[in-house]
């Protein structure tokens, strides 16, 4: 009896759900076109990576870090590129503009004095750019213990239609 009732309810629900969607102004396609962030191929690792470098993460892991709001995203490109489009909430720390000497006070200030075991995700524009690798090595040397590199960068992020923060309009 219980099983029979459950089947009846499921059938009635199916008719209502899929029937109403046919005439609803807020109808959605029955089969959605959702990107699968899990690529199966793992993170992009550049050939210049060395043993002891921070871990490289794939876009699905980067997105999880982004969703959790517990990771600090660091854009290693110049401010101009950062302003053209970056991962929302990312901090701009251009590798090319790092000061000489001890980087500890610089990173402390730029990262808002976060603890050394905070999750930090560095990224650049994409596979052709290794600034995130160099920046993360510097951060690791200073003592940050949970630095990871999203080497797919802003291009792979955009490819999966994840949100991008644009401060200025730029020509492609």
């Amino acid at each position: 009896m219980v099983f029979k009732q459950a089947i009846i309810l499921v059938v009635v629900t199916s008719v209502l759900a899929f029937g109403v969607n046919l005439i609803s102004p807020n109808a959605i396609p029955y089969i959605g076109n959702y990107r699968s962030l899990y690529t199966g191929s793992g993170p992009i690792v550049p050939p210049e990576a060395q043993l002891g470098d921070p871990h490289f993460i794939a876009v699905d892991v980067a997105e999880l870090d982004f969703s959790s709001s517990e990771a600090v995203f660091v854009d290693s490109r110049e401010p101009q590129e950062y302003n053209c489009g970056t991962i929302p909430g990312a901090i701009c720390i251009p590798f090319d503009f790092l000061p000489e000497g001890d980087l500890t006070p610089y990173f402390d200030s730029a990262l808002g004095y976060i603890s050394r075991d905070s999750r930090i995700v560095t990224f650049c524009s994409g596979e052709e750019c290794d600034l995130s690798l160099h920046l993360s090595r510097n951060m690791q040397d200073v003592g940050y213990t949970d630095v990871v590199i999203f080497f797919g960068g802003s291009r792979e992020w955009e490819k999966y239609e994840l949100p991008i923060q644009r401060r200025i309009q730029c020509d492609e």
Binding site: L9, T13, A17, I28, Y30, I31, G32, Y34
Partner: peptide
């Protein structure tokens, strides 16, 4: 899985309502 998301999004709320 991505292909099931919309079907679930349509079905679940109506099941909640009916129940």
């Amino acid at each position: 899985p991505g292909t099931l998301i919309n079907l679930m999004a349509l079905f679940m709320p109506w099941l909640e309502l009916v129940c």
